[in-house]
Amino acid sequence: MKISRVGKIAHYQIVFMLLMLALIGALIFSINSGSVDMPVKDIFKIIVFGAQEGSVESNVIWKIRLPRLIAAAILGGALSVAGFLLQTFFRNPIAGPYVLGISSGSKMFVGFTMIVLMRYVNALPSGIIVLAAFAGSLVSMGFVLLAARKVSNMSMLLLVGVMIGYICSALTDFFVNFAQEREIANLTNWSMGSFSGIGWSDIGVMAIIVFISLLVVMMLSKPIGAYQLGEGYAQSMGINIKWFRILLVLFSSLLSATVTAFAGPIAFVGIAVPQIAKILMNTSKPIIIIPTTFLAGSVFCVFCDILARTLFAPTELSIGTVTAFFGAPFVIWLLLKQKK
């Protein structure tokens, strides 16, 4: 094997290991921070040996912190991979579920479903919410695709996406006017974007959806790699473009819908993280970039969640505020770099 090839593989492995370490570090730091002060030793005992069962500390760890940070890790990764798929699909580094209005579509459908169904039941099963979010993201995606047929210019397409986002938000606000107070409290909390209030059953649902999707996406890494050369070449290599595009749309929508269903719309993670992953790995090979993107997304969201919780504690920031703070400047930098 050539030396350069061996060097590259070593590079991939080192970066991957570093990201793993960063994730573990962020998880430990995250579980250790919060309004209730606990020594690391105690936390370790509570998690590993199930110590102090029923105590306040145990409840804080098991019912609040642990689900929250696991959700942040899974959903952060899912959102980033959704971004990667959209960037592949539109062959545009600035595409993402939030800017294209796909998250807002989910938000609208989830909001609508909540307002209608909460009249009859007290709590909605997470499966229903995910379904609503998925339907919403597909509707938004449909509009974006329609627009993509008319405009070839990528900046224009993004503008269209942003507008679709505004329309969805406006409609959501419109529905909220007809909602009862209890529903509004639920809705506003969720629509701000947060990893709080996620239970273990939710984690089960999201883990199944996200990991199955991730597996499928990994299986698609060969055609994704070919698609990077453009549709014409991809087809000439034997890819069924129609099916490939449908799969990309479905799985990017499903992943971003899952995130929106559980944590609300979160901005800029989907754009920024895949780009960071490519820069870190110095390649765009999907088989490398997909897992890296997932891992980097996990690290990024766990980290942002820590900031959201601790920066102005006891007041909590919405996760979207923190991700936008880091993500938006990065996107501006990307735009400027593209111009060159």
């Binding site: 580094p93 990077q228 014409g232 070449y233 290599m237």
Partner: peptide, 20 residues
């Protein structure tokens, strides 16, 4: 499509810009 790909390959006019 794979059988076609093994028999026929193309150089197209479209510009390609695969990053990295």
């Amino acid at each position: 499509s794979v059988e076609v790909a093994k028999r026929l390959s193309v150089v197209l006019t479209e510009k390609v810009a695969p990053e990295l």
